[in-house]
Structures are given as structure tokens and as C-alpha cells.
Computed example of a mutant assay.
Amino acid sequence: MPGKRAEAGGASSKLIGILKEDHNHFAVLLDALDRQADLFADGEAVDYELLETGISYLRAYAHAVHHPLEEAILERLSERAADDGLVGRELSLQHERLEDSLKLLQSAFHDAGEDQSTLRQPLAEALHRMVSDMRAHNVWEEANFFPAAGRALGAQDWAQLSTGAEGQAVPAARPLDPRFSNLLQQLGCSVSADGE
């Protein structure tokens, strides 16, 4: 069925392409956060707005936009019993760990408030750990989850996933909070007027 595989490839390429573009934006932001963690650990001046907005973006965007698309693909993959649940369990665990890590990190920076000088080293270490975990997660998804979905799901699966839960097409440019759009643009990411 070359025709069906070609159709699936086009639809899967679109959705996987959206997720990979998110990963590219995350990578640029993670690099910036890693540099801030180095400065923070060294007692240098840091960009607190970048830290706060960056962590908020990773948490809010991943939770509200990025991970739901991955979870929809995972649900379809699970329906096909294509991976005996191994990829799905690992993906879900990683998403939970990242959400917990981002929530704790956001809370730690907020709670430290003005007293961050005494907590610089632990906060910098926590930030480095989160950056490392998120990079490893993105690499794992691109090496394991995306290929598994590409192999197991057919044209009809991808077409249904492309229309989303409400029957509307998953937009290539997804809406972003203006402060997140501004942050990504400042970091050199190309962001359309409608979002990513």
C-alpha cells in the first residue's frame, strides 16, 4: 500500500514536525537557562525575568500544548498495542517527572525571593538538573517515541490526530502568551504572530 504509507508520512511528518519545532525552541531556551544557572552558581548577576519567564514557558506550554499532542499520539499508539506499552509508560513517567521538576523549580525560585544569595548553589544545581533532564527527554522522544508512532500509525490515525479533539486542525503555529513569544524572539527563535 504505497499510497496509504505516503499519506501517513505526510500527516505524520506534519505533526512530528510541529513537535520537533517545539523541541528546537526548548533547546534554545534550555541553553539560555543553562547559562543563567552558571552565572547564578558563580554569584554573578542573572536575568531573573529570563529565568522566571523561561521556566513558566517550559511548564505552561509543555503542559497545555506540547504534551497533550504527544499524549494524543500515545493514546492512538496504545490503541494499536504497537509497543506493548513500553514506550507509553516511559513517556508518561518522563512527562510526570518533568512537570514535577518544573513545578518545584518554579516554586523554589519564587519562595527564595530576595534571599536567593544564600540558596544560589542549590538553585543553580536544580536548574542544571532540570535542563539536563529535559534535554535527555527530548532526545529520547526523537529516538524512541516519534519513530514508534511513525511506524505504527496509519494515514487514518494521523488524519484524525491532525484534526484534534474538537475536530479542528492542529495549527502549525500554536498560540503563545505574548511574553513567551517575546522571550523566544529575544532568543532568536522564529515565532509567527500566532505563536510558534
Rank of each mutant, 00 (worst) to 15 (best):
M1E: 08
P2K: 09
P2L: 07
P2Q: 15
G3S: 14
G3M: 12
A6R: 07
E7C: 01
A8C: 03
G9Y: 03
G9L: 15
G9Q: 08
G10E: 12
S13I: 02
L15M: 07
G17F: 10
H23C: 12
H23T: 00
N24V: 08
F26V: 08
D31K: 12
A32P: 01
D38R: 12
L39V: 07
F40N: 02
A41R: 12
A41I: 04
D42V: 00
G43N: 12
G43H: 09
A45G: 04
Y48P: 02
E49L: 13
T53N: 09
G54F: 05
R59N: 09
Y61W: 11
A62Q: 09
H63C: 01
A64W: 05
A64G: 05
P68I: 01
P68G: 08
E70I: 00
E70K: 08
A72K: 14
E75H: 13
L77F: 03
L77H: 07
L77D: 08
R80A: 11
D83I: 03
D83W: 06
G85M: 14
V87Q: 07
V87I: 14
R89P: 00
E90N: 08
S92K: 09
L93Q: 15
L93W: 05
R97E: 13
E99A: 13
L102S: 06
L104T: 01
Q106V: 01
S107P: 00
S107G: 06
S107H: 09
H110Q: 13
H110R: 12
D111Y: 04
A112M: 06
E114K: 15
S117W: 13
T118Q: 15
T118D: 10
T118S: 14
L119N: 10
R120Q: 11
Q121T: 10
Q121W: 06
P122R: 05
P122A: 10
L123Y: 07
L123I: 02
E125T: 13
E125Q: 14
A126C: 04
L127E: 06
L127Q: 10
H128P: 01
R129A: 15
S132D: 13
N138M: 14
N138R: 06
N138K: 04
V139Y: 11
V139T: 15
V139G: 05
W140M: 03
W140P: 01
A143E: 12
N144Q: 15
F145R: 02
A149W: 00
A149K: 03
R151G: 07
A152K: 04
A152N: 13
A155Y: 04
Q156V: 09
Q156N: 08
D157A: 07
A159P: 00
A159R: 15
Q160P: 00
G164L: 09
G167S: 08
Q168L: 10
Q168N: 11
Q168V: 11
A169N: 08
P178F: 12
S181D: 09
L184D: 02
Q185E: 14
Q185A: 13
Q185P: 01
L187F: 11
L187W: 03
G188R: 15
S190R: 14
V191N: 03
V191H: 02
G195Y: 03
E196N: 03
